[in-house]
Design a protein around this nucleic acid. Structure first.
Lengths: 253, 253
DNA sequence: TAGTGCTTCCGTACGTTGTACCGTACGTAA
DNA sequence: TTACGTACGGTACAACGTACGGAAGCACTA
């Protein structure tokens, strides 16, 4: 009952790290910023599984334990990585609301930007936590993505719900996309090749007599997407349905 | 260039395990089924992080390496866990299509069942891979969930897309829910307590002068949900919008 | 019944991981 | 020049998945 961590302390420490300006480099040039950049480089190139403190230290030409002088632990490092990545999203806070085609065009833009971000940094999908990382870029992201929804007939709570819905959809489809990429990299077999190779197995599994609808639809969808799933198509299709539903909500006022 | 695994071999082995009837217990009573059940018990109670081969063996009163006689490795074990969990979903293949209120009621039922499944087995959210686990229960799930969408004016590909959209939405919101539970268990602080405690920090982060919309909407949503997010509300709100959008698609024919 | 062989069981060991602990060595201020 | 504080990093520990090889029990045949 006593080994419990005190969240306040951790949070204060994380916040100081996230918001603290760049500390001066020590005698070996080691900086929080440099550590974060090295970590992101590794995660981008080799995946989150390859991200170890030893690996980061090695890339920086530094002893492993030296990292702990600047960063409390791996958890805080990943928080810093996430906030740094959020910084890539928008040029300025009005970029989404400046898009053409009103709130619909803006949400499509937001979806595309988040999708691209996840494609560049697929490791983010393994690190996202329900409680937001309260870094300097998270607030800006939230403001930028909310502005186009202001004054179109939604309540404040609805604005938040609509944005969350779109972001959850993008995250879900991006996760599938990232998973496919990871499998392809691991096995050297892309989705289409896999689908073609496992067609006979799928036919047996999807027994047409026991599962008539599944076998028919599965075959049609497989042919269309040349694989078990097509995340890019799912993103577009789902977003269109969601935005139609939001339009209904607004029109119902 | 030679250490690459041959997917076909792995797949054949996995399929044999998934579909193979229960092998007879050896001289210590060890069975694939028993191993899977023990693993699920651990993952349910202590989370996926606590699921180790040593732990499973300990629970069964068996040497760690004995497990490898019955299961090739941890990856295959988790595949078996997932398929076993899918078996809990539906009483029979017509349960979703027998729901009242047509395709809409059926999809709401499907969403609720998947949501409940993820609440019972939150570890599934950390294991789901884009390529389906081709076990005996996956096909049944697919058929059961597709049937209510048959003959309502959607093409085959659209049926698959609509189902995938709903399932992705449920998975995304359930992931948030599971994340909150995990944090609460780790810190002993529930979402509302955390939100109340970090209100001053949030006020500073969401500077009302720089981020007027974010601070206003964030406050409203926070008050409404008594926390940074409310997955159950997000599930219902999002599903309503999605189903409205699907209705538009059908009506547009 | 004795022998033979196959399968099941499992102890040991290796290479990983995050990080606690503590000694060393350097840059800066007095 | 001396002294202090901080940055650096070597070693060590517990936990992980699992390769390897020995030991032991069961089902057969002779």
């Amino acid at each position: 009952m006593s080994g419990k961590k005190v969240p306040d302390m951790d949070m204060a420490r994380s916040l100081a790290l996230l918001w603290g300006s760049h500390t001066k480099p020590g005698r070996s040039g080691l900086t929080v910023r440099a550590i974060v950049e090295a970590a992101i480089g590794i995660a981008d190139a080799e995946g989150l599984d390859a991200l170890s403190m030893r690996h980061v230290a090695e890339r920086l030409g530094v002893g492993t334990m030296s990292l702990y002088t600047h960063v409390p632990g791996k958890t805080e490092l990943t928080d810093l990585m996430i906030d740094a990545a959020y910084g890539e999203l928008y040029r300025d806070v009005d970029e989404p609301s400046a898009q053409p085609d009103g709130w619909r065009g803006a949400l499509e833009f937001v979806a595309a930007r988040n999708w691209d971000l996840y494609r560049r940094h697929p490791w983010m999908l393994q690190l996202v936590t329900p409680r937001p990382v309260l870094g300097p870029n998270a607030s800006l992201k939230y403001e930028a993505e909310l502005r186009p929804l202001d004054g179109i007939g939604l309540s404040d709570v609805e604005m938040d719900s609509v944005l969350a819905l779109v972001l959850t959809h993008v995250e879900g489809t991006a996760r599938v996309r990232a998973g496919l990429d990871q499998i392809e990299q691991a096995t050297g077999m892309n989705e289409t090749e896999w689908w073609l190779a496992s067609a006979p197995v799928l036919d047996k599994v999807m027994d047409a007599s026991r599962f008539p609808v599944a076998s028919r639809v599965g075959t049609a969808a497989g042919q269309e997407h040349q694989g078990a799933s097509d995340p890019a198509h799912a993103l577009a299709f789902g977003l269109a349905r969601i935005l139609d539903g939001v339009a209904d909500l607004i029109a119902g006022r």
